[in-house]
Computed example of a mutant assay.
Amino acid sequence: MTESTDRPVAASGTFSLGGDLPVHRLGYGAMRLTGKGAWGEPADRPEAVRVLRRAVELGVNLIDTADSYGPFVSEDLIAEALHPYPADLVIATKGGFTRQGPGQWQPVGRPEYLRQCVEMSLRRLRLERIDLYQLHRIDAKVPLDEQLGALRDLRDEGKIRHIGLSEVTVEEVAAAREHVEIVSVQNLYNLASRKSEDVLAHCAEQGIAFIPWFPLATGKLAGPGGVLDEAAARHGASPAQLALAWLLHRSPVVLPIPGTSKVAHLEDNLAAALVTLTGDEVGRLTALG
């Protein structure tokens, strides 16, 4: 096999988080390794371990998780499968959500709680420093400067390398940057959902990584005979691969993190890095939104 097919993710290009942390742009999101509703253990734990190890074999060096996935299950799995970690592997995690049950999430941004989140993630992931720590949601009940101040202090103590945000507006990104450097934003964004178009544009202008979660969603766009279906047929690819390829072509700051609990699905997703779209195809797919 060629290098490109052995490690297809390398073909997605690279982005330097915070200007000093290079990663391949196509990563892996570890939420789907947990039970239904991101609650509890995976249905097949050995397969979950195989997925993580195969992702790294295929060139993934950005794995995104959160303490609330499980809760705690996803972080534990990553350490079980991959520790001691490859030197170039970046594990990005998140904190600031409490869990009450499957599909239930409650933001808590009190400084003492965020500090506890970081300390426990360090322990579960068996790390001395978290390369990218993201505030899972801004807590409206806690002053923003207190939430970000806690993360800034942890960064200054060497327990966090870089800080990111999740599900924020342009205004919130700008407000956050008055308190601390923000190197990434993780928002819902895909072919079928473009509510964060302005946030992506802002990130591109500022050189901030934009990490779209739920990147494989295509909605009705993948219907037979549609633009996405036709483009997939031309490339001998699946609609999901085209959705990921479009994200990679959308902007050099975009870092998709498709998730799955199956090795076969993982391999299909990561092969999207080898799909090259023409400018016309990118334009037609962009127009679908």
Rank of each mutant, 00 (worst) to 15 (best):
E205Y: 07
L77P: 00
W39E: 06
G223M: 13
P22I: 02
L248E: 01
I63D: 07
D76K: 12
L154R: 01
T14C: 08
P111M: 05
H24L: 05
V118R: 04
V51A: 00
I257E: 06
A174P: 01
S12A: 10
A264K: 12
L33D: 05
W39A: 08
P143L: 04
Q104K: 15
L151W: 01
R155C: 05
D268F: 04
V90M: 02
R126D: 09
K94Y: 03
S74L: 09
S238M: 06
S12T: 01
P102V: 11
R155K: 13
L247E: 10
I208P: 01
P143V: 07
A11R: 07
P46K: 09
D6E: 13
Y189T: 11
R54C: 11
D20F: 07
G279R: 15
L285I: 13
L89M: 10
Q147E: 15
A176H: 00
L200V: 10
R137Y: 11
Y133D: 04
A287W: 09
W213V: 04
G207S: 07
G95C: 06
H136A: 15
A237Q: 03
P8C: 10
G219E: 10
E167I: 04
R32E: 12
E178S: 08
L248A: 06
T218K: 05
M1Q: 15
R50F: 00
H179P: 02
P42C: 00
R250W: 08
I91V: 14
I138G: 05
G226T: 14
E178K: 12
T65E: 04
T218Y: 01
L270S: 07
A175K: 12
L114S: 04
W105L: 13
E181K: 11
L274C: 07
V170R: 10
D131K: 14
A79D: 02
P224F: 07
V49M: 00
A140T: 14
V73R: 00
L144G: 02
R25V: 08
G13D: 00
I63L: 13
G283K: 12
A43C: 06
I91K: 01
A273S: 10
G279H: 11
G283W: 08
G226I: 03
A192I: 09
R123L: 11
G289I: 03
P111G: 05
E47S: 07
L270C: 10
A38V: 15
G109K: 06
D67K: 09
I163Q: 01
I208N: 00
G149L: 06
P107I: 10
L151Q: 02
Q106E: 15
A271E: 10
A273F: 00
G13R: 01
V253F: 06
A232S: 13
L221D: 02
S16R: 09
I208D: 04
V275R: 00
G149Y: 03
F214L: 15
A79R: 06
R234L: 15
V180C: 03
A30K: 03
L288F: 12
W105Q: 13
E146N: 05
V56T: 14
L132F: 11
L26A: 07
D229I: 01
L62F: 12
E41T: 13
H83A: 11
D156F: 00
G96K: 02
L33E: 04
K36L: 14
V199A: 07
P86W: 05
R54K: 14
F97N: 11
D156L: 08
